[in-house]
Design a binder for these strands. Structure first.
Length: 282
DNA sequence: ATCCAGGAAAACG
DNA sequence: CGTTTTCATGGA
């Protein structure tokens, strides 16, 4: 089986990277093997110290998906600006942001609103199993994430089987809105962060939080700082203690938090966000 | 039962 | 215009 060796200046933790809640299509078995579907490939991968053993795709593909080309020490050093984030950096050493397929990431975060991670994973799996192409791997059947056309013409009963709840019409409308997946992908990628964010938020079911997640996880726009209930708590308790204890997150508060984050952590604040999120208690 | 979860749309005043 | 209500699902 192919192997990839990491040098000492290439910190990487497969477990932290795949279990921190950024991607929803990976499962880990008892032996430490991770199985996941990326595009039209089933990837099997395991880490032992500085060695990655994998199957299902060529080495450059693995390096690219897991952002192994990123100088992680340089990135974490750039936002290592206070004791709290410093602790998170130490706790989560090797955590990297992966490069997710944008269309799948878009639908995933439309399905993520007001849910917890196990529920989101189940929904994405339901969508793939219902509408995706089957992939055989080691006597098991996996499924690709369906392209936008497959979802655009999904019939309502089949979609309701996916248990998306009130998110179903958002998925349908967004799928119908995007005529050409690649053109959409390229147009978002070409825009600067704030503009790309506004474009994404025109889609049904995509608000500030979903847009920031998509920009961060699929478009590598690291200045995006998604604020969910956990991040909001952390920011309130450790960074912006003047924020009130209100229940609902207002647009004003969301912007206050992300502006603060960009100023405090710098241009890789999105990376910092993931370290804060991964090291949360809960 | 009640509350909560990687929120956002729609209704309201 | 900013603010509150509603939305579907399942686990704790």
């Amino acid at each position: 089986m192919p192997v990839l060796s990491l040098s000492p200046d290439e910190p990487f933790s497969l477990d932290l990277t795949l279990s921190c809640g950024q991607a929803f299509r990976w499962e880990r078995d008892a032996d430490g093997w991770w199985h996941g579907v990326v595009g039209d490939r089933v990837i099997k991968i395991r880490q032992k110290n500085a060695t990655l053993t994998f199957e299902g795709g060529p080495s450059p593909f693995i390096r690219h998906y897991f952002s192994l080309d990123t100088d992680l020490d340089a990135v974490t050093t750039s936002f290592d600006r206070d004791p709290f984030i410093h602790d998170a950096i130490l706790k989560c050493r090797g955590l990297r942001l992966v490069r997710q397929p944008a269309w799948e990431c878009l639908i995933s975060y439309i399905c993520a609103t007001n849910s917890n991670i196990p529920m989101i994973k189940r929904r994405i799996a339901n969508i793939a199993n219902t509408f995706g192409k089957p992939l055989e791997f080691e006597e098991k059947t996996y499924h690709t994430f369906p392209d936008h056309a497959s979802l655009a013409c999904a019939c309502t009963p089949a979609l309701s089987e996916c248990k998306l709840g009130y998110r179903s019409p958002y998925v349908l409308e967004t799928a119908c809105d995007i005529e050409d997946e690649k053109a959409w992908n390229d147009s978002i990628a070409a825009l600067p962060y704030e503009q790309a964010r506004r474009e994404l938020m025109r889609l049904q079911g995509v608000g500030p939080k979903a847009a920031d997640c998509i920009l961060l996880f699929a478009f590598q726009k690291y200045e995006a700082f998604p604020v969910d209930v956990w991040i909001r708590r952390i920011m309130r308790d450790h960074y912006i203690k003047t924020l009130n204890n209100d229940s609902s997150l207002t647009g004003w508060e969301y912007d206050t938090i992300r502006r603060f984050a960009e100023k405090h952590f710098g241009k890789y604040c999105g990376y910092a966000q993931e370290y804060l999120y991964a090291s949360r208690e809960g």
